[in-house]
Design a protein around this nucleic acid. Structure first.
Lengths: 244, 244
DNA sequence: CCGGTCCAGTGGTCGGACCAATCGATCCCA
DNA sequence: TGGGATCGATTGGTCCGACCACTGGACCGG
């Protein structure tokens, strides 16, 4: 006679509910360590499987942080968790390099502009450190790609929006072909000098300058990439005709 | 000596990645049933535990629907499914809502600018149709939110970038509650007139004007939202002091 | 042709075992 | 005595095999 459950309530769901109640009671505050899984499972009267299921969900939503060999800690969800719908979306969508590149070109100049307005002492130090490491790089060495990614990451961090930071990371990951092709073609000297221009503008808190520098940098990367691809496709044709 | 892995990569994470590859290959379409868990686990060479872990994550994000006794089905996440797990997160932690609003403010002005440069006959018709419907709306009726979402969708469609379109859609879903707060506060007249200004700029293929109009519109929305929240929180305080 | 029954297959739950990472106490040596 | 290496207990991560709960469809009887 009562409402029929359209969806069988899973045990993990109930546990999630109980844990949320526990959270809201204020008894659990950020940084605290939860009891061990085996203990919690016994306490709730469920198997460790179901208990873990509940914990994983809360972890995915950013409320928990499980560390192997240590414990599970309470934390307050930040943009890291919120970025997941976007990351999954981009990862699931059919890959279209043009759309992804354009998307990045929409976002990142604004990120540079934001960074210029939100520069802190830490941010200044991080940017200078990145610049120093980039300058010390050997020409076209294998670490250029890594430092390049790191630079963009630091910049997004200075901008202070975790969601945007993670989304940009995902975009870069999906566009790694672009990087491996266009970076060597551009050469580390050119890349680093373009980065330097961006950094200088941010350090000067020149909002428009930072945006413009980043825009030109990305346009340059895109152009180099397209040229390199065009050249590769055409030399491939020639290579087939040559021995070796 | 090499980079230290800050986060141990879990098996379920890898499986999620492989499933995402499968998704975007187009081989899996909505409504399809996945192979049984036992079979999939064998196929990926992992235990059923880890495989289930991956499936549960994709289920939480709205990409899968598991039915006991039947099977696990592929689905395209609608706004509800996608935003529901995260809605609490947005509503209870203002910092997260701010990140999302800022993210939107980064993207959408550029989308408006893009739309202005890529306007086609179809796009013109769609925008005019949207404007007409918006004008015919009763003041603060229930359909205002719907038409508002539709307007932004049409605009992104005119801009012609599928990735950006879907990202903005997700953003709006996550911010749904924000909209229900700020829209009535602004009133439909003001909202529609701001939309109209954007549409006019796009129709005139005025790139900078469209960007600027959208930026001001979003700033207005954000300000209205913050005011409304501030007022709500403070009237809550007063309500506590009053009887009833 | 209809309705009920039964059964194979599927996701959900369980318990136990072992692996792997971490922390901290302990021990050893300079 | 101080510092560093070692080892063990603890904890989350993974695997396995079994069983439960539910569903859809085949089968059967009227």
């Amino acid at each position: 006679m009562s409402a029929k459950p359209l969806r069988q309530v899973k045990i993990a769901d109930q546990v999630v509910g109980e844990l949320q109640v526990w959270f809201r009671s204020g008894e659990l505050t950020a940084g605290m360590r939860l009891p061990p899984e085996r203990e919690l499972a016994a306490q709730f009267g469920v198997s460790r499987t179901s208990l873990r299921d509940a914990l994983r969900r809360l972890e995915l939503l950013g409320y928990l942080d499980a560390r192997q060999g240590d414990g599970t800690y309470v934390r307050v969800p930040d943009g890291d968790a919120l970025s997941q719908p976007f990351r999954n979306l981009v990862n699931t969508l059919p890959h279209n390099a043009a759309d992804l590149l354009e998307f990045r070109m929409l976002i990142e100049p604004e990120v540079a502009a934001l960074a210029a307005t939100r520069l802190t002492g830490e941010g200044r130090a991080a940017l200078l450190g990145s610049l120093k490491r980039q300058r010390a790089l050997p020409d076209n060495g294998p670490r250029l790609g890594h430092e390049d990614a790191l630079f963009h990451d630091v910049l997004a961090q200075v901008a202070g929006n975790m969601v945007v930071l993670r989304v940009l990371e995902t975009l870069r990951d999906l566009l790694r072909d672009v990087r491996t092709i266009s970076l060597p073609a551009a050469g580390s000297r050119r890349t680093v000098s373009e980065h330097e221009r961006i950094i200088q503008a941010v350090l000067a808190q020149d909002r428009d300058g930072a945006r413009q520098a980043m825009r030109e940098h990305l346009e340059d990367v895109t152009r180099t990439y397209q040229d390199a691809v065009w050249r590769r496709d055409h030399t491939d044709q020639l290579a087939l005709q040559r021995p070796g």
